[in-house]
């Protein structure tokens, strides 16, 4: 993971005084999250008298995260640390795509279609996938889940595409 060639260009983006890019970027991202939370909770009521308003605790935690994130980023400046690890795009992309497809498809297309399709999309995430094998396993998994969730576990969900049933 750490000795991949794509690391060198990543480093050059950051100025030289950043000695631990992994911590530096990580800390900055936490600061960003904290700022976002501060903004998102800015419309909430604060302290009134002794009692907390709805916004007190969120803002308190956000400020805490802001300070901690800044400290982590500072560590990235003061101490030599690991570089940013290389990201791969294939796995994250296709796994996310499969998840999103399932979420969008489950209502209109039902479990059978969306689960099977999600399986195949996720399988694209690895270049080692063998398609015949994947189709067989995907079909078996779909069948298994179609029996397990609604019948064995009693969790009802749409099975088949809506336009076929009506």
């Amino acid at each position: 993971m750490s000795d991949t060639p794509s690391e060198a260009p990543v480093k050059s983006i950051l100025p030289e005084w950043v000695r631990g890019p992994q911590d530096f970027i990580g800390g900055l991202a936490m600061v960003a999250v904290a700022l976002f939370a501060l903004w998102a909770s800015s419309d909430l009521q604060g302290m009134h008298g002794f009692s907390f308003g709805a916004g007190t605790a969120p803002r308190m935690f956000a400020v805490l995260l802001l300070l901690l994130g800044a400290a982590v980023a500072l560590m990235g400046v003061l101490k030599d640390g690991p570089n940013i690890a290389a990201y791969s795009w294939r796995g994250p992309l296709f796994v996310s795509a499969a998840i999103v497809f399932f979420a969008v498809g489950i209502r209109p297309f039902g479990l059978v279609v969306s689960a099977f399709a999600a399986f195949l999309i996720a399988a694209l995430g690895s270049h080692e996938t063998k398609w015949i094998e994947a189709i067989i396993v995907g079909a078996c998994l779909t069948l298994g889940c179609a029996l397990l969730f609604p019948y064995v576990l009693g969790l009802p969900m749409p099975m088949f595409p809506r336009f076929l049933i009506q």
């Binding site: 499969a98 689960a115 195949l120 094998e133």
Partner: peptide, 23 residues
């Protein structure tokens, strides 16, 4: 693992959906 990981993805997705029936 090439067969296991898509299975886990699908199984998890169905599992989460079944909690609240919420896409």
């Amino acid at each position: 693992y090439r067969l296991m990981f898509p299975s886990i993805v699908v199984f998890c997705a169905i599992g989460i959906y079944s909690v609240n029936n919420a896409p």
